[in-house]
C-alpha cells in the first residue's frame, strides 16, 4: 500500500499538481495582459471600445464559470472543425487556459481600471509635460503606480484562479482534481486522496500568497 502510494499514485498526484500550476500560470499571464487591456480600454478608450469592454465584463462575469469553460471547449471544437473542414478535437490545456484567462480578465479588468483611476492626474500631466509619449507615460509612470494599488485585489484573484483550475477537470484535462478523482476510484479511499489533493492545493496557494506579499512590499518602495 505504502509502496503504491510513493511509486504510483503519489507521483500521479504530483503530476496533476504540476498541470494545475502550469494552467494557472499561463492563464494568469494571458489573463493579466487581457485584464490590463480591458481596464485601459475602459478608462482611455473611445466609446465603442469602452462599451465593448463593459459588455465583455458583463457577459463573462454574468455566466457561470463552468458554462464559459464548456462554451469555449465545445465552441472551439466546432469552430476549428468548420475552419479546417475535418473534425478537430480541441486541446484541453489550451481550451482550459483560454477559458480561465477570459474569466480572470473580466475581474482583473475592473481591478486595473480602479487602480489606474486612483493614480493622481498630476502624474500623467507631469509625464506629458516632460515630453513623454502617451505610451511611455502609461507604461513607465501610470502602470507601475497602478500595479501597487491593484496588487491586493490582483493577488486574491490569482489565488481564486488556482482553485478554479479544478473546474477544467470537466473537459478531461488531467489536473490535480481529475487525477484525484481517478485515483480515489482506483484505491477506494476517496477521503485520503482528496485530503492529499487539498494539501497540495494549499501548498500551491500558500506559496503564491507569500509571493504576492513580497511583491506588495517591493511595490511599496518609495511610498511612505
Amino acid at each position: 500500500m505504502t509502496m503504491e502510494w510513493v511509486s504510483g499514485y503519489g507521483l500521479q498526484l504530483i503530476f496533476g499538481a504540476v498541470t494545475t500550476l502550469s494552467v494557472a500560470l499561463v492563464a494568469l499571464v494571458v489573463g493579466t495582459v487581457l485584464g490590463i487591456s480591458l481596464g485601459t480600454a475602459k478608462i482611455y478608450g473611445a466609446k465603442p471600445l469602452r462599451y465593448s469592454a463593459e459588455a465583455y465584463t458583463a457577459v463573462v462575469r454574468g455566466v457561470p464559470d463552468l458554462i464559459v469553460i464548456y462554451l469555449i471547449y465545445f465552441g472551439g471544437t466546432v469552430a476549428l472543425t468548420k475552419l479546417t473542414g475535418e473534425y478537430v478535437d480541441i486541446n484541453g490545456f489550451a481550451a482550459g487556459v483560454a477559458a480561465l484567462a477570459f474569466i480572470f480578465a473580466a475581474y482583473a479588468g475592473d481591478i486595473f481600471r480602479g487602480a489606474i483611476g486612483q493614480v493622481p492626474r498630476g502624474q500623467t500631466e507631469a509625464a506629458h509635460a516632460l515630453g513623454l509619449s502617451r505610451r511611455a507615460a502609461f507604461f513607465r509612470i501610470i502602470l507601475p503606480q497602478a500595479w501597487r494599488l491593484a496588487l491586493p485585489g490582483f493577488g486574491n484573484l490569482a489565488i481564486i484562479l488556482i482553485k478554479q483550475t479544478s473546474l477544467i477537470s470537466v473537459i478531461g484535462l488531467e489536473e490535480l482534481l481529475r487525477t484525484s478523482s481517478v485515483i480515489s476510484g482506483a484505491t477506494r479511499q476517496p477521503f485520503l486522496v482528496y485530503f492529499v489533493a487539498a494539501i497540495l492545493y494549499l501548498i500551491i496557494t500558500s506559496v503564491v500568497s507569500w509571493g504576492f506579499r513580497n511583491a506588495g512590499i517591493r511595490s511599496n518602495r518609495g511610498f511612505a
Binding site: 500631466e125 509619449s133 503606480q145
Partner: peptide, 22 residues
C-alpha cells in the same frame, strides 16, 4: 504637441514627482 513639450518645462504646485522612482 510633442515638439513643444520637449522645449517647455513645467513645475507644478503639487510637485508631481514620480513616487515610485528615486
Amino acid at each position: 504637441i510633442e515638439k513643444v513639450r520637449r522645449e517647455v518645462g513645467m513645475v507644478f504646485q503639487s510637485f508631481n514627482l514620480f513616487p515610485h522612482m528615486t
